[in-house]
Design a binder for these strands. Structure first.
Lengths: 142, 142
DNA sequence: CATTGACTTAGAGCGCACTCGAACTCGTAG
DNA sequence: CTACGAGTTCGAGTGCGCTCTAAGTCAATG
């Protein structure tokens, strides 16, 4: 598969795929006789996993560490596992932090709901249930 | 209180506080007779709330919208509430997304944990070895 | 009176993660 | 043969959110 198709299938742009290869996040791809990258479908699995790491806030320099260990292959499994475990803890902490903020947000909104009832009555209120934000990326809460 | 103390108490740097004032995230502070900012303790509540918004991923331009409504004061409550409700939905979506990634991470880690379990990383490794001498840093050519 | 240290401003610089432009080469369709 | 579209490289540009520098002012202390 060529870069255009990989772009379509991975959700990255061709520019970003080349950028990732340049910095070492994606392995150097085979070129066909006219120097065009030719990808194996298996790269999609790796790109998808990189996407998870990115979604969970792992900076590129850490992904590079992981990618380098993966390239090295044999013997690096314990270190890769350790890195993922550290990252998992960070993600858990982040979720906890977000949940805490959610409570504050709820309180604040409840405060406005009371004030709104006094001043403006409630008419814009229902909109919050129907008026979902336009699709951003993937899963939706609740 | 002067900017240094506010910095200490808020966790921001004096630089950041001035920056926030410049862009309108913090109200223009009163100056004493030698042009130094003099803060009321109440600003801490606002800074703390801004911190929550930031922690939950609200971009500055949206905080500015909220801050502007707040400056306007009376009558803007329904809009402020609506904005917070939209934001709350995004935070919930983000948490859901992180939780989904957490499952993937758990699975991956479990794969590493099992003795002699190399799963799909092994295949990917074989593939990259088969390819060119994958230069992990800058790829040049020509 | 000199020094210290906290403050002031305008504006430049930085780290991150892309994102895009320019100029070029190929392979194929008409 | 020519045009087109998809690819190639190098390197510059972008948007975000700070972060820092330079040059100067000011009040209090030794």
């Amino acid at each position: 598969m060529k870069i255009g198709e990989l772009a379509r299938r991975s959700g990255l742009t061709a520019h970003t795929i080349r950028y990732y290869e340049r910095i070492g996040l994606l392995p150097y791809a085979d070129r066909d006789r006219s120097s065009q990258r030719d990808y194996d479908a298996s790269i999609l699995t790796w790109i998808e996993f990189l996407g998870r790491l990115k979604t969970t806030g792992m900076p590129i320099r850490e992904m590079l560490r992981y990618a380098a260990l993966r390239e090295q292959g044999a013997g690096t499994e314990p270190e890769r596992r350790a890195q993922l475990e550290r990252h998992r803890e960070q993600v858990r902490a982040r979720i906890a932090e977000l949940n805490a903020c959610l409570l504050v947000l709820d309180t604040k909104i409840a405060g406005y709901a009371g004030a709104g009832n006094r001043i403006e009555d409630y008419d814009a209120y229902q909109r919050s249930r129907r008026n979902q934000p336009a699709r951003t990326r993937q899963a939706r809460a609740r």
